[in-house]
Design a protein around this nucleic acid. Sequence first.
DNA 1: GTCTCGAATGGGAACGTTCCCATACTAGAT
DNA 2: ATCTAGTATGGGAACGTTCCCATTCGAGAC
Lengths: 349, 349
Amino acid sequence: MSAPTSRHPTILEVAREAGASKTSVSRYFGGERERLSPALRQRIGEAARKLGYRPNQIARGLKGGRSRLLGMLVADIRNSYSVAVMHGVEQACREQGYSLLVANTGNDPAQERTHLSLLASYRVEGLMINAAGQPTRELQAMAAQGLPLVLVDRWLEELEADRVGLDNALAVDMAIDHLSAQGYRHLLFLSEPVGLASPRQQRWQRFEQRLSEEPALDGERHDPALDGSAVGALLKAFLARAGRPAAVLCANGNVTLAATRALQALGLSLGEVGLLGIDELDWCSLVPPGITTLAQPTETIGRAAVQQLLARLDDGGAALPPRHTLFSPTLIARGSTRLPATDNDKETP
Amino acid sequence: MSAPTSRHPTILEVAREAGASKTSVSRYFGGERERLSPALRQRIGEAARKLGYRPNQIARGLKGGRSRLLGMLVADIRNSYSVAVMHGVEQACREQGYSLLVANTGNDPAQERTHLSLLASYRVEGLMINAAGQPTRELQAMAAQGLPLVLVDRWLEELEADRVGLDNALAVDMAIDHLSAQGYRHLLFLSEPVGLASPRQQRWQRFEQRLSEEPALDGERHDPALDGSAVGALLKAFLARAGRPAAVLCANGNVTLAATRALQALGLSLGEVGLLGIDELDWCSLVPPGITTLAQPTETIGRAAVQQLLARLDDGGAALPPRHTLFSPTLIARGSTRLPATDNDKETP
DNA sequence: GTCTCGAATGGGAACGTTCCCATACTAGAT
DNA sequence: ATCTAGTATGGGAACGTTCCCATTCGAGAC
């Protein structure tokens, strides 16, 4: 009542001011300016400017069913990979005239369900999902209602939906090839708990497969919890067991961080024990002698997700089969995968 | 036409299914369940579940004027400080039953204006602003329309609005006190180009003030562009000029990154040349011997912003004076501000 | 038995758009 | 002159809610 809110002007007020009808004003802002006579066009433009009119997206969304909103469900907004992808998504959205409604689930499956229905209630026109858990049922329901869905990075086996992400098998291949070429023979694959997260599963499996194919290499796989001292103990035991030259392949950025910490705590220098991480982080070049990484084209992945969504939106449910778009990582070789020259020939000390 | 979209059920369909009126269903979902008889309540609940009904927020927002949407304008979504604050914002929003519409301006003032009016067109109920440029005019207009505004971290002098952020003077004080206590005498304050960014200005000014008050200390201030080799050259020249023991105070995370790179390139070890950064980053403990930082309570800052916004929303424009909420940083002391024992007494070599 | 009151429920207008359809006018063809 | 087609414009219904205002009904007071 006492609010000093000088209400938003409506289309009707602009029409009155311009001596036109609301239909004409609607056309003016709805991208049909060419249909208006130059005189009317000008009058409307002036009136709108004078009143500070801005079309109400809410009302617009109600009538037309076009909310011009795209939703993105992010497992962990503090994860730099997620943020980088989101950045690409955001840019692409803007370029296409959409806004982005972001929901962060904090890796909590319960939150995930809540947020999913929240996004639905805003009638987003499409949804990008970086799943924390397995909200398959909910997503199937949404897909059945005709909502375009794109799974980003992580996917759900039972869900027939478009997917965008890294070519995980290729990434592991590149990692192993590089480590092998650099002279490392004993490999430790280190992951966060694999669980149901598809990228972790894929990287994990590919590692096993490749190792079984390469007689010159041997290795182990582990997926410890990253908090606590498990990583350090694991590394120590592995190095004792495996001998040299040994290297650690980190399945994602968090693992790289934990492994680097652990190696430092053990007083081991990078390179002498090889270290290669999937995901490039801004500090990887900083820790001497630099950590070798496989960088994901995060921005591209984000843009691809939006593009895929809009393609679905366009073809109006032509029920094309799900499309999977995979991207290749880029190897950034640094000192952490360079064996010290002097140690060249003492294979197993 | 051919779309397999099995339309969202409406309140009317639920009402029909439950043998009730739309008003009752509206009450059921509008948080007035107690007003309904247990029998009716149950029938509506069942009908809604059966049809998979979900209130349409768009329609809801139109009639009631309550979009249940809060907007946040972020200068750079890839900046870990911004993301951390955003995380707090997002959590607080969720807890209060709001959703968050995020707009990233990529530090581009033009984008900023565009996004501001975009957010306005979705009729967000409040706006958190982490400004890239100086959209004072636009913000004044929005504030005049009764839209609650909170400036986060960066603020605009001419704009009378609530502010939430770090106590920058205190941060610089703590930094200088720590460096001084650790035995450093020659200080270099390094910032990104100060320009109009208020936190940079405040830190910059406080540094000058403090230095003029402390005869035991001397120092310089610089704000080079971070790309290119300017930082390295600057550091080298400063160290030659100033003598030892010298330390660098980095005004934010980006600077810390650049300075660390530059010191490494110069072959200088951390600690021998002191390094203290404002903003804690996850790699600061990794670079030997660890980088001393002043951590901001980012999560708290984000939550405070939302809280402030909702407070304004509640008092319905009681025109209270703008409120400024400042938070204290936490010092995390590491090796980069510990002088090597042997160098204790060669003040100026 | 009538009156009053409160609790439970429902009808209808309004929110600010879009979009279908009607109308008015101009110009050229007949 | 009349008809046709096209262009510029406007009126009104609809989108799915909320919220104001009835209406109904039983219980207790008179």
